[in-house]
Amino acid sequence: MQRVNMIMAESPGLITICLLGYLLSAECTVFLDHENANKILNRPKRYNSGKLEEFVQGNLERECMEEKCSFEEAREVFENTERTTEFWKQYVDGDQCESNPCLNGGSCKDDINSYECWCPFGFEGKNCELDVTCNIKNGRCEQFCKNSADNKVVCSCTEGYRLAENQKSCEPAVPFPCGRVSVSQTSKLTRAETVFPDVDYVNSTEAETILDNITQSTQSFNDFTRVVGGEDAKPGQFPWQVVLNGKVDAFCGGSIVNEKWIVTAAHCVETGVKITVVAGEHNIEETEHTEQKRNVIRIIPHHNYNAAINKYNHDIALLELDEPLVLNSYVTPICIADKEYTNIFLKFGSGYVSGWGRVFHKGRSALVLQYLRVPLVDRATCLRSTKFTIYNNMFCAGFHEGGRDSCQGDSGGPHVTEVEGTSFLTGIISWGEECAMKGKYGIYTKVSRYVNWIKEKTKLT
């Protein structure tokens, strides 16, 4: 034993070699072989497995989906700052455009905790909710729209109204504003409101030439003092309507412009014939205590009207009353817009006519005020429907199939267009061939041609 100890002390290297040989010859039971080890760690190889990531292109799944990435790591994937920024906006807080917040056709661009709407022409605001041009839906104005110097929408209202708090709607500024039905039992019968379409306001006024200088022999019209197929109006439903009495009662109609003036057809009036105007009328054979009678003290036909040349060209006249009318729910003026808007309103496509005229061709006159909704007829169809001249200051309205029309005794009465609950004068009943005849239409004086003249002559002093 002493000898062994001496050998170990003198030859430590020998001992180490012996131990190493023993270990190498022993069977290893701690580690699995290569094949079995792979069965336990069965993990798919990654895209760049075996390579240094710093030297390969980034992978979106590896960089940002398996674990949260930084902007720089995302930049490695896209290799483009702009594309990385677009991805980053949604990656950080989701897609803010998912709810489609942009209105009126706006395009949404996502941002971090926010979004941006790219608005089409005519709109602005956070969600493109603000109209900035009158060309689109009248700028959301209830009545009139004008573009300011910086191309912003400025709404306005006709006389007797003021802008509401929203700067879009119009509200009454006087007790009985024009064009409004205020009798409670008839307010439910107000005709369907007309909503502004998209309009090209630059070209809204037709490029028409008034044929002022045409000389033409007097034409022989049949029954051209021209509501057939209409309905009984309720008291106060058309408070701007008046009836004219002269040699015979209810020979023509008219509309209240203001307390002192009536507008009617020029062919209705004769110099030297006494005319009485009755406002607030409903049943011409009954006294309903809503009527107001006034005498006409002055007749002003349009300066281009000449019955000797043509009885229905420039067929418009103004009547001055001896005493002002007292405005109330049964006696209310009709609204008159400017030339541009009167023309736009007419193009809405349908209007209402009213009167006490004959209820059928050569038949009896109506006792109760009649009204009828009539569609506008395109000019080409209008011209083809008659052998008589249709001037540019006239328009056609009615039904091709016949059966409904204005008729004798309705002449001078109103053709009105309702705009968001307020009625505007767009025409004056003038003439036609018979009444409600198939293929024939009622012919009306186009008020847009005469609004400046009306307003100039009827100013209240």
Rank of each mutant, 00 (worst) to 15 (best):
I7Q: 09
I7G: 12
M8V: 09
M8Q: 09
M8A: 12
S11A: 12
I15Q: 02
T16W: 08
I17T: 02
L20W: 08
L20I: 05
T29C: 13
V30Y: 15
F31C: 15
L32I: 11
E35R: 06
A37N: 15
N38M: 06
N42G: 05
K45S: 05
N48W: 10
G50P: 07
F55D: 05
V56H: 13
G58S: 10
N59W: 06
L60R: 08
R62T: 14
M65V: 11
E66N: 11
C69K: 07
F71D: 15
E76G: 15
V77F: 07
F78I: 13
R83N: 14
T85W: 04
W88P: 15
K89D: 10
Q90P: 09
V92W: 07
D93F: 09
D95E: 15
S99V: 15
C102D: 01
C102T: 01
S107I: 02
C108N: 02
W118V: 10
G122E: 11
F123Q: 14
E124K: 03
N127Y: 12
L130H: 09
L130D: 11
D131Q: 07
T133Q: 06
T133A: 13
C134P: 03
K137L: 12
F144H: 01
A149C: 05
D150C: 03
D150W: 06
K152S: 11
V153F: 11
G160C: 01
Y161G: 00
Y161S: 01
A164L: 07
A164N: 06
N166E: 03
K168S: 05
S169K: 08
A173T: 08
A173Q: 05
V174W: 04
P177E: 01
R180A: 04
V181S: 13
S184W: 07
Q185L: 08
T186R: 08
T186P: 13
T194Q: 03
P197M: 10
D198P: 06
D200T: 05
Y201G: 07
N203V: 04
T215M: 02
T215Y: 07
S217H: 06
T218N: 10
T218A: 05
T218L: 10
F221C: 13
F221E: 10
V227H: 05
V227L: 05
G230Y: 11
P235N: 07
Q241A: 12
N245P: 02
D249I: 05
G254F: 01
G254R: 00
S255V: 11
V257W: 01
V257S: 00
K260D: 02
W261Y: 06
V263R: 01
A265K: 01
A265N: 02
I275H: 05
T276I: 08
V277K: 00
A279I: 01
A279L: 00
T290K: 05
T290P: 06
V296P: 02
P301S: 06
H302M: 02
H303P: 12
I309R: 12
D315K: 01
L319Y: 01
L321K: 00
S329M: 05
Y330F: 12
V331A: 09
D338R: 06
D338M: 04
K339C: 15
F348M: 11
V353Y: 07
G355R: 13
V359S: 14
F360C: 07
H361T: 12
R364Y: 06
A366F: 13
V368Y: 14
Q370G: 12
Y371G: 14
Y371P: 07
P375L: 11
A380H: 07
C382M: 02
T386E: 15
T389H: 12
T389A: 08
T389Q: 10
T389W: 14
I390S: 13
Y391E: 15
N393L: 02
F395A: 02
C396S: 01
G398L: 05
G398R: 09
E401Y: 05
E401F: 11
G402D: 06
S406P: 12
Q408S: 14
Q408H: 14
G413K: 06
G413F: 03
P414W: 05
T417C: 03
W431G: 09
G432S: 13
A436E: 15
G442M: 15
Y444K: 01
R449H: 15
V451S: 14
L460R: 13
T461D: 14
